[in-house]
């Protein structure tokens, strides 16, 4: 079926807008789109989006993570073998992490990473034919915010929820960050790590995030003030 931008699309649909844009210049195809011999076809169900000038993608619902380059993910170390760590990032195959890809790590100075640790890392290699590789440093050799996440609490959610709360227009983090202090790391693989001063506050952050999946912006703001007042009421 022929579809337009901002329409609901199903796999097998096509958009003439993409084809005509492709004749004029370069087009960037995001997730959910695939070029075949004659046309560009849609491969995922969701909403077709466009960003000027020529970027197209499909906003779709997904829970299983498929690695893609440059994304920040949260993983668990499952194995230490020789000079690499194997890290479970939720994809079909565990990612590898060299012990040299930490800040200030040398052959003599090994990073302190144990099996079972939670890591915040960046996807360096993500190809369908190769094992994914992650690193805990940027290209300048600095760790930035990457590395082992100590203490805190990790929970899983859908990939859409992570994208939603990281969207600058989402009011969730804006409204709860001033209510009580907490730390948060969101991995694009559908895992979120949170750390607050008390157990109650940690649960409050977690519940606020999970509840915001199916709420509109105004409802999120309401919910956040509710949670904050409940929390304040019991603490005092």
């Amino acid at each position: 079926m022929k579809v337009e931008v901002d329409d609901v699309v199903l796999p097998g649909d096509f958009s003439e807008e993409i084809d005509t844009a492709g004749e004029k210049g370069k087009v960037i195809l995001g997730p959910g789109l695939r070029k075949e011999i004659d046309k560009v076809y849609i491969t995922k169900a969701g909403v077709l989006r466009k960003r000027a000038p020529n970027t197209f993608w499909v906003d779709s619902y997904q829970k299983r993570y498929v690695p893609s380059r440059g994304e920040n993910v949260i993983g668990f170390v499952v194995q230490k073998s020789g000079d690499i760590f194997r890290v479970d990032v939720g994809s079909s195959c565990p990612a590898t992490l060299s012990y040299l890809s930490f800040e200030n790590a040398t052959k003599k100075n090994r990073p302190e990473v144990q099996v079972g640790d939670v890591l915040y890392a960046k996807m360096l290699v993500a190809s369908k034919d190769m094992e994914p590789e992650i690193v805990c440093v940027d290209s300048h050799g600095k760790k930035g915010r990457l590395g082992v996440l100590n203490e805190g609490f990790v929970f899983k959610c859908s990939l859409n929820l992570v994208r939603k709360i990281l969207n600058p227009s989402c009011p969730l983090l804006e409204s709860i960050k001033n209510e009580w202090p907490f730390e948060l790391a969101a991995g694009m693989n559908g895992r979120i790590w949170i750390k607050a001063n008390t157990m109650r506050e940690t649960i409050a952050v977690g519940n606020a995030i999970l509840a915001s999946e199916y709420l509109s912006d105004d409802e999120i703001k309401n919910m956040c003030t509710n949670i904050a007042s409940i929390l304040a009421g019991h603490v005092s």
């Binding site: 199903l10 796999p11 097998g12 695939r34 076809y41 491969t43 299983r64």
Partner: peptide, 9 residues
């Protein structure tokens, strides 16, 4: 629903 890439439905 799973978001697996499909040729058609």
């Amino acid at each position: 629903n799973s978001g697996v890439a499909m040729r058609h439905v």
